[in-house]
């Protein structure tokens, strides 16, 4: 219980700072809307079916929006060297990691919902018409976002003590994201094509396994990247 309270305390602080500055949310939202507008004009939907191409664009926009904002999670800690204060406190470093994952997850989830809305408007996407379809879509979004933020939160910490700064993040993150991208895009494609659940189930299982691996690896390795 105490452990969860620490996780929530860290996440709540990050969210409170974000709500007051809106630094990352504004940049990520503007980027997401811009992507939607650009593709709306760039793609001729009389030649290409929106349902076919939209899932890839949705996840591409989500990942780039995430790269834009989530990499800056430690910037607020760098201000006044607040990170040293956190490291000097008696909390376990994996609780700190999970707190950061939670705040990043809430922020990116809200952006992905915005992206879905933007693409629904510009591409006239038809969402699943039944509860199972909605549940599957929610599960894909949940697992896709969680796998991305779990690895992003770990590797953004590398930038804190690295002379290359934030520019190192894409180099480290993109190769690790390949399995996540393959399964989220495939599953989302099948959901929008109204395919039966058995065709999506396999992707969901693999995504759940990826999330588990990334979270365990993140919690175990976090102290090695965050400590000086």
């Amino acid at each position: 219980m105490k452990y969860l309270s620490v996780v929530w305390t860290v996440a709540r602080k990050d969210l409170l700072v974000e709500i007051r500055t809106l630094e990352r949310l504004v940049a990520m939202s503007a980027f997401s809307v811009l992507i939607g507008v650009l593709f709306h004009f760039a793609i001729d939907t009389s030649l290409i079916r929106a349902q076919t191409i939209a899932p890839s664009l949705i996840w591409m926009a989500s990942i780039f929006a995430g790269m834009l904002g989530l990499g800056r999670i430690y910037i607020i800690e760098d201000e006044n060297r607040a990170l040293s204060g956190l490291l000097q406190s008696p909390i376990s470093l994996d609780a700190l990691y999970f707190g950061k994952v939670l705040s990043n997850f809430i922020i990116l989830l809200s952006i992905v919902v915005l992206i879905l809305f933007v693409f629904a408007v510009f591409f006239n996407l038809s969402f699943p018409g039944n509860l199972l379809g909605w549940t599957s879509l929610s599960a894909v979004v949940f697992l896709g976002v969680l796998s991305f933020v779990s690895i992003m939160t770990l590797l953004s910490a590398v930038a804190v003590n690295n002379t290359m700064g934030e520019s190192i993040i894409p180099v480290l993150v993109f190769p690790l994201l390949v399995p996540t991208v393959i399964h989220t895009v495939t599953a989302t494609n099948r959901i929008f094509a109204n395919r039966p659940f058995v065709e999506i189930e396999g992707n969901l299982r693999i995504l759940a396994a990826i999330v588990l691996i990334f979270l365990v690896a993140g919690a175990s390795l976090f102290r090695f990247v965050i400590e000086e």
Binding site: K13, L16, V17, R20, T21, I76, E79, N80, R81, A82, S84, G85, Q88
Partner: peptide, 15 residues
């Protein structure tokens, strides 16, 4: 058991 103060305040400006 330890408290630390440096010339950096370790506080969050937005809180």
């Amino acid at each position: 058991q330890i408290g630390i103060v440096t010339h950096q305040t370790m506080l969050y400006d937005q809180l």
